[in-house]
Design a protein around this nucleic acid. Structure first.
Lengths: 189, 189
DNA sequence: AACGTAAACTAACAAGCGTTAGTTAAATTT
DNA sequence: AAATTTAACTAACGCTTGTTAGTTTACGTT
């Protein structure tokens, strides 16, 4: 089940290229060239191109699902939960900026696992929305349209992979706390 | 300079497909099929595939540049300027959800106009950052890291094209004001 | 020393790609 | 009525695509 080291190298090389040009524009020959081998050699380690994309996306999606499940079931306050979600995104995105690009932009090229991915995504968004709604009911956060709050925060978190490489000097923990400040309290004085 | 009606139909059809699968995964035969003609017929109206993408991206980018220039030079308060920027994004995204997908995800496939696009993008972000910094200096908004504020707000605004089609019932003006509330004042109570 | 395996290679495939050339039919202008 | 223009068509091109088959090379185990 768990990939061999060489397979992981292929996935890593592919992730970098997928981020630069998107899945469809990257050829097996591109991936091979980045590793200094020929395209046919890749098939000693992987089944096909789709398997690479599937691994990148599904393993990341499951990380998020596991993360939010723990947060949701904890007995923290809503604000604490939201901060934990922000930290979760900063953590995962920091450790895999390349893969996050595929998760965001190339999921529609999944075949076998497309339905599974869509299920995970809906599940994640539902959990997130639940936490927001609970916070409104308990009067812990503002009573605004939950979908708009979800959309606003999640859009920022999903774009982290673009900005993190531009701010390499910033510690993930610092980024997470600064982001919490902005997302939770706004920028208005 | 301005495209013929038929050329615009091609661009519109292409935009829809580009949003669904990304520029690289859409073939000229796909675009032609969506219009009920043959791929070769497209070339009576356009120079090549790249021209379609270039038109979609550059015309949108220039809309944003023009919009923010007006806002920046106005003598509104910082908070008013920020609300105007939010309204600008909601307006443009509402009228071209498909094209916004290419602007966000397919700009790297530009050739001739790639440099021009990158220039416009930097210019836009600089103007936006300027407005934020000015607001901090004038004590109109919080004194937080300007890059993080910029990143946070702009990520949400750039993702609007994904969410607007899911919320067709919501008026653009209502969306803009709700979004202003969330982005400016945060979700914490 | 012989064997087995892992991982590279060369060569090739069928399918699909963007694009061009030349043709045809209908609509518009002279 | 004749000439021109517009916008579709068929056919084909050279190239690239993902992938397969068969071969070679290097290395650890017997």
């Amino acid at each position: 089940m768990s990939p061999t080291p060489r397979k992981l190298e292929i996935i890593t090389a592919a992730s970098t290229l997928f981020k630069e040009k998107g899945y469809s524009a990257v050829t097996m020959r591109d991936i091979a060239k980045a590793m200094g081998i020929k395209a046919a050699s890749l098939y000693n380690h992987i089944k096909n191109k789709e398997e690479i994309l599937t691994f990148i996306i599904i393993s990341l999606a499951e990380e998020f699902i596991k993360g939010i499940a723990v947060i949701k079931e904890s007995n923290s306050t809503t604000v604490e939960k939201l901060k934990q979600i922000i930290a979760l995104h900063v953590d995962i995105a920091s450790n895999n900026t390349n893969g996050m690009a595929s998760l965001n932009n190339d999921w529609m090229h999944l075949k076998d696992q497309l339905d599974h991915y869509l299920y995970l995504r809906v599940d994640y968004e539902d959990s997130f929305r639940e936490i927001i709604k609970e916070g409104i009911e308990k009067n812990e956060i503002k009573n605004l349209n939950p979908d708009i709050m979800l959309f606003s925060v999640l859009s920022t978190l999903r774009s982290l992979y673009i900005w993190i490489p531009l701010k390499e000097d910033m510690e993930p923990s610092v980024l997470a706390s600064n982001l919490s400040e902005v997302l939770l309290k706004g920028i208005n004085r």
